[in-house]
Design a protein around this nucleic acid. Structure first.
Length: 881
RNA sequence: GGGCGAUUAGCGCAGCGGUAGCGCAGCAGCUUUACACGCUGUUGGUCGGGGGUUCGAAUCCCUCAUCGCCCACCA
């Protein structure tokens, strides 16, 4: 047992223990182990990312699960790694290169040179987040760290592509896709964010050819009119039957365009006439297909107007072109009106610029294993926590649409397709000289969806895969339920024939105190590393977990971390208290010498263990943290440690030793219960308290992380130590008594150092050790038992549950009027309670219909309140006499 | 337009059919020999509004309101 300092200093111990864990290879997962397996794969963070509070929440939960499983005797694999994050990383590197003047556009460097730069960047900045996760205490098996662009991993991605292509699920086609003009690439539907915007609806007049007047169309995007190829009306719209078959003159371009009829047009919206821009609107494209309209491209991939838009507009940015078109139309007298109009505009999730519907050649995936994947969640084979996310998942699965997987980027997995002239081959290796590889890369998620098995050596049936696939729990945020979770499930069934995980835990989103999302621009996103430096990793973990209920967003407040720090300090000092009393460590507990306090704390420990088990089973980690907090602080420290001082300060050596044995018993269990949440401090104390010495090397002897997870106390243990729930009730009553006496002290401003001499009148005396504890807890020197006692007028009195009256003689220190007021107030409250219960009992149908037990409870309650009332009334009478 | 969630003490939350609870904050005291990152005592609530079911509703049902997410090709 080594001596420990007065305040806990996390900085002094955290790095030391983390290094020890690494050196001892405690995090290594052994596929040959006989222990049952438990595995988690980390949601791979962006390789160039830095740790955020979101990561803290997510990875703390995973670490808690991993450490809990280890203590339960399972062989744990927590597999870490990072994601190449195609667009995000490429954008970051492009920005940096532009800033240092190395290029204006990536084309300036060329593909190879540019990729070199990205790899350089990755080597330099990649892995920061891995170091940060270590600071947090993450118990990942770092020897298995993977990156989605590792050579073997890349091979998996390409093989999967080839397999799906051969199955006919991957195809190439010219489609209207979501185009990001800033990143100059196609995106999937999921990468488009709909943003509500205050816009305008411009009403344009197109002159009719060979007739009088105009047809009026409304549009939110005037610049697209330059590419119009028709005006459409609903065939059933009686207002426009006269227009069928006619033509209109497209202003500015001075082209004749047909007026067509199509069911897609809603007669109730706008004028009922729609301008049709086949190349720049998905709905218009559909109509164009039906009516064989030409596809005039007026907006280029970089968002500027093309030659086809006419010399006046060519080269303008689409938004400038919008203004220019409106101005010209107005000049020509063809702008009928402008309305304010609120509508939703698709934005790129990555570059935050408006998406351009763009017709291009892309690769698409028709999802595999959709039916199985849907059923898996419906049937509960895969469980979501909280369950309601299942609905979101199923809705998406039922409306699933093909996935555009090709990206016009350079940073990513190259599409394994080779071209030679008009020839095309899909295979991993080049077919030979002359063949050139497709220039597109694959969506990042097309590699991430393989994560649970590609990281374990697939397609080889490795020992790791056999032992650890499928994984146990996946911990992730709900915003990637489609991007990642759903796709991993499908990939799991398709390539492994089995779900990739059994449970999915969805965390909430971390928000600030005002409920706003964390963001760099708001500056409300604290740096977890600074918090760790200031408060310690354990404090950060505990603070975050305490305020992160299942299924709710987390409102982060630094105060929570402070509370975590304070809690660690409390734990530290409670252990220090034990250390200040020399004696055998973890001695035998003698049942004969157990006090009621001892019995009580053992029962409370038992309750805490059960609550912890329930919380883990239900994935309610904030409940678990709250249980630990309550048990340790409010029960163990506030009551048990205080009471234990009676025995520890006494002269009875045997009793003292027994109390120390109970302290050790509770602490050694408590430290283990805490370990998943507070890995560092518990390891420090585990060794510091000498508890490790008592354990076999493989089970807690070297580290608390392999110490057995506490089990609820066995019945024969309880019998042996005489633990019964009666003790809990008795102790609660005694606590109430103590609080009442302290209350009297506070009411009458009796200084803490003023010792009391209490008088117990009537009933039987307290047992000697009981008396000693009560004296200690209320600051009394004596409790004299008297069969006859004449209290001073208005002397405060409290009523022990065991009967009799306990007087608090504080002559000269109290104020009769104040005591009267206190009692009167108390009495009023009791009258209210009595009235409530009486009203219920007075209801005739209550007695008839209510279960006997409930009726009895109410009657008992009434009796209790009534006797309490009598006590107060008599005390009041005493004051008046 | 659909779907989901939230609404309980000043703030953050728990409770989900039988006496409204926890933590912070607040207030009043305290150098009580583990801890001021602490100790003791204590004030706050007609559980968003309105209906209904029930002996009994914060808890179940209906409805409205406010806030927040997600999904949806009305130009």
């Amino acid at each position: 047992m080594s001596e420990i300092s007065k305040a806990y200093e996390p900085q002094a111990v955290e790095d030391k223990w983390y290094q020890y864990w690494l050196d001892q290879k405690f995090f290594r997962a052994d596929p040959d182990s006989k222990k049952p397996a438990y595995s988690i794969v980390i949601p791979p963070p962006n390789v160039t990312g830095v740790l955020t509070l979101g990561h803290v929440l997510n990875n703390t939960i995973q670490d808690i699960l991993a450490r809990h499983a280890r203590m339960q005797g399972r062989e744990v694999l927590w597999l870490p790694g990072t994601d190449h994050a195609g667009i995000a990383t490429q954008a970051v590197v492009e920005k940096a290169l532009r800033k240092e003047g190395a290029m204006k556009h990536r084309e300036d460097l060329g593909r190879e040179k540019f990729l070199e730069k990205v790899w350089e960047w990755k080597e330099k900045h990649g892995g920061i987040i891995i170091q940060q996760l270590k600071k947090l205490g993450a118990s990942c098996d770092w020897s298995r760290e993977r990156f989605t662009m590792d050579a073997e991993y890349s091979r998996c991605v390409q093989m999967v592509f080839v397999k799906l292509y051969e199955k006919g699920l991957i195809y190439r086609g010219k489609r209207m896709v979501n185009w990001d003009p800033a990143a100059r690439t196609a995106l999937s539907d999921e990468e488009v964010e709909m943003v509500e915007e205050q816009g305008h609806l411009w009403h344009f007049k197109y002159p009719l050819i060979g007739g009088e007047g105009f047809v009026v169309v409304a549009t939110t995007r005037p610049e697209t009119m330059l590419g119009d190829e028709a005006v459409a009306v609903n065939p059933a719209d009686p207002r426009y039957t006269n227009l069928h078959g006619k033509k209109a003159l497209l202003p500015l371009r001075e082209r004749a365009i047909p007026i067509i009829t199509d069911e897609l047009v809603d007669p109730k919206f706008g004028t009922g006439c729609v301008k049709v821009t086949p190349a720049h609107d998905p709905a218009d494209y559909e109509m164009a297909q039906r009516h064989q309209l030409p596809l005039t491209v007026v907006i280029a991939p970089d968002g500027t107007m093309t030659e086809a838009a006419g010399a006046e507009f060519a080269g303008l940015d689409r938004l400038e072109a919008r203004k220019a078109v409106v101005a010209r139309m107005e000049e020509l007298g063809l702008l009928l009106k402008v309305e304010n109009y609120t509508h939703r505009v698709g934005y790129s999730e990555r570059t935050h610029v408006p998406i351009e519907p763009y017709l291009s050649e892309q690769w698409f995936l028709r999802y595999p294993a959709v039916a199985e994947s849907t059923r898996a969640v419906e049937s509960g084979e895969i469980k979501f926590h909280p369950e309601r996310w299942g609905k979101t998942y199923l809705h998406w699965m039922h409306h699933i649409r093909d996935w555009c997987i090709s990206r016009q980027l350079w940073w990513g997995h190259r599409v394994p397709v080779w071209h030679l002239g008009t020839g095309m081959r899909c295979q991993v290796e080049s077919p030979g000289a002359g063949w050139t590889q497709d220039t597109d890369v694959l969506d990042t998620w097309f590699s991430s969806w393989l994560w649970p098995f590609a990281t374990m050596g697939w397609p080889t049936k490795t020992e790791t895969l056999k032992k650890f696939y499928p994984t146990g729990d996946l911990v992730t945020a709900p915003d990637i339920i489609f991007f990642w979770v759903a796709r991993m499930i499908m990939a799991g069934y398709e390539f492994m024939g089995e779900a990739p995980f059994r449970n999915v835990y969805f965390t909430g989103i971390i928000r600030d105190k005002q409920g706003r999302k964390m963001s760099k621009s708001l500056g409300n996103s604290p740096d977890p590393l600074e918090l760790i430096a200031k408060y310690g990793a354990d404090a950060l973990r505990f603070g975050v977990m305490r305020s992160a209920p299942l299924g709710q967003d987390v409102l982060y407040d630094e105060q929570q971390v402070e509370l975590g720090r304070n809690f660690c300090n409390k734990l530290w000092n409670a252990c220090r208290f034990r250390q200040m009393h020399p004696g055998e460590v973890q001695g035998e507990i003698n049942p004969v010498l157990l006090t009621r306090d001892d019995q009580w704390i053992l029962l409370r420990l038992d309750a805490a263990i059960r609550e912890m088990d329930t919380a883990f089973a239900e994935y309610k980690f904030s409940d678990a943290a709250a249980t630990l907090y309550r048990f340790f602080w409010s029960e163990y420290c506030d009551w048990y440690i205080e009471a234990s001082k009676a025995a520890l300060q006494g002269a009875d050596a045997a009793r003292k030793a027994n109390t120390l044995a109970v302290l050790d018993f509770v602490l050694s269990h408590t430290l283990r219960l805490f370990h998943p949440f507070l890995p560092f401090i518990t390891e420090e104390l585990w060794h510091g308290m000498g508890y490790s010495a008592d354990m076999p090397a493989e089970q807690g002897g070297k580290t608390i992380m392999f110490a057995p997870w506490p089990k609820p106390l066995e019945d024969d243990f309880k019998d042996h130590y005489g633990l019964s729930e009666d003790v809990v009730r008795e102790m609660e009553a005694r606590q109430k008594l103590v609080i009442e006496i302290r209350n009297v002290r506070a009411q009458f401003r009796i200084p803490a150092n003023k010792r009391l001499n209490l008088v117990l009148h009537g009933a039987t005396d307290f047992a000697p050790d009981e008396k000693q504890v009560i004296q200690l807890l209320v600051g009394a020197d004596s409790i004299e038992h008297r069969t006859e006692y004449q209290p001073a007028k208005g002397e405060p009195v409290v009523y022990p549950a065991s009967g009799g009256k306990l007087y608090i003689p504080i002559a000269g220190l109290f104020d009769v009027e104040a005591e009267k007021a206190r009692l009167a107030k108390e009495l009023q409250k009791i009258e209210g309670e009595i009235a409530k219960v009486q009203q219920k009992l007075g209801n005739p149908s209550f007695a008839e219909k209510v279960p006997a037990q409930v009726l009895q409870e109410h009657q008992q309650r009434l009796a209790d309140w009534q006797s309490k009332r009598e006590q107060l009334q008599s005390a009041l009478a005493n004051l008046d006499s």
